[in-house]
Design a protein around this nucleic acid. Structure first.
Lengths: 134, 134
DNA sequence: TCAACGTTTCACGAGTAGTTGAAGGATGGA
DNA sequence: TCCATCCTTCAACTACTCGTGAAACGTTGA
């Protein structure tokens, strides 16, 4: 992941509403959530939500698709993972003390990953994602 | 780690000079680096550097100590790790697809951590550091 | 005590991000 | 075609962040 992409991802995440947005969308996976439902859940005005959503989308952390009248937003897990990965690997050089802070739960989950329980595709969005929107 | 702390850590990292600062300091471990040397290395003015350093310190990502006339800055690895850990665990709920993006090296390192080989050596300065700018 | 050095703080101007409310598309149903 | 609904974009404003240069601060050695 390029540095400029990581920087925009970090500044996108450095806002309480947008962090809430990601927290809300990640567990919902590809199913996602309509913008209106998100606004009601988080108590944001439509225009403010739209502003934050487009910031996150431009940073490659979420994606959108239109379904009839609604626009469904879902987390871009590889984008989020890419940013975290940059911090761990390129920025902290996988320093053991940093990794140790990532806790037992991650370790657990990583074991699951190693055993093949991971979600199907992890591939880079740049290459493969075409045109679900516009 | 509290949310407000994570938010300030993220916005501290969301700046090219400060990301460079962390990248510079992490491989130097506790040994750290004097502010003047950092300024020369990164080509920053003294006042600008001081501003960025105090932003990082307030966010809990680095720490400082005075040694004679110099102020030595070093990475706070648990602070950095705590912020990344929040992103992985609290924000992404250790989603396997996010963890999968963190790459083979982190997985390797985490396995080492899980096996109890955690954090014995922290300082590892000149050996393998890929400092592109110096 | 004083000068030199390394670092921080301050004041200022410029640029950018965040919020609000209103207006502007896109879509679906009558 | 018209209207309601859902969402985005725009304009205006405020608040914040960034960068520069100058001054201030703390430490050291003569």
């Amino acid at each position: 992941m390029e540095r400029s992409k990581v920087l925009s991802a970090l500044s996108a995440l450095a806002h309480v509403s947008r962090l809430d947005l990601v927290r809300l969308l990640v567990p919902r996976g590809d199913e996602g959530m309509a913008a209106g439902d998100i606004a009601r859940t988080l108590g944001l005005s439509a225009s403010r939500l739209s502003f934050h959503l487009s910031a996150l989308e431009q940073a490659g952390l979420i994606r959108s698709r239109r379904v009839s009248r609604n626009v469904i937003y879902s987390a871009d897990l590889s984008g989020i993972g890419g940013a975290i990965s940059y911090l761990l690997a390129d920025c902290c050089m996988d320093h053991p003390q940093v990794l140790a802070c990532c806790g037992a739960s991650a370790r657990h989950a990583l074991h699951r990953v190693a055993e093949g329980d991971a979600a199907p595709r992890i591939t880079d969005p740049e290459s493969g994602t075409p045109d679900r929107d516009r």
